[in-house]
């Protein structure tokens, strides 16, 4: 089991950042790498257990299931059901915490998963930088005051 952890500071209040990201079907609206997304079975996107089915800009399809969602803690977690990444038991969590000093947001995004040992380094970089940090970077642009 390996763990990838990425954290950043976003220059906007936590509730404002949360409004951007709490929609489990909203990846195309704030990440640079998702082309389109739908929730399977017509469920609401904040129903625990719902599955988002999205297509990456590079063509790959991913299915992820919402495991937890807390508006109180500004936190959600999800698992990967199917993907071209070659990962097993993948569970990720995205969490925001208010920074009272300057009314900003501390954003954390981490994942735990299994993969072939020789791919650990590459996958950690792809996920930590290519997905999580890239997501934060685009959030920083979107909420810029």
């Amino acid at each position: 089991m390996i763990k990838v952890y990425t954290s950043s500071v976003i220059d906007a209040p936590a509730e404002q950042v949360w409004a951007r990201i709490r929609d489990f079907n909203g990846l195309p609206g704030w990440t640079p790498f998702v082309a389109e997304s739908r929730i399977e079975g017509g469920l609401p996107s904040d129903k625990i257990g719902c599955v988002r089915n999205f297509r990456l800009k590079d063509g790959g399809m991913i299915r992820e299931q919402l495991l937890t969602l807390s508006d109180y803690d500004y936190q959600c977690s999800y698992s990967i059901l199917e993907s071209p990444l070659g990962v097993d038991n993948y569970v990720a969590t995205l969490k925001l915490t208010p920074v009272t000093d300057g009314n900003r947001t501390f954003a954390e995004w981490w994942a735990e998963f299994d993969c072939a040992p020789d791919r650990e380094g590459q996958l950690s970089r792809d996920i930590g930088q290519g997905v999580f940090q890239a997501g934060f970077d685009s959030l920083k642009m979107l909420v810029r005051r």
């Binding site: 952890y5 954290s7 500071v9």
Partner: peptide, 13 residues
């Protein structure tokens, strides 16, 4: 404390 990996800074709660 938590690590801010983006910029090697520190979040202090």
């Amino acid at each position: 404390l938590k690590r801010v990996t983006d910029g090697d800074r520190t979040f202090w709660h």
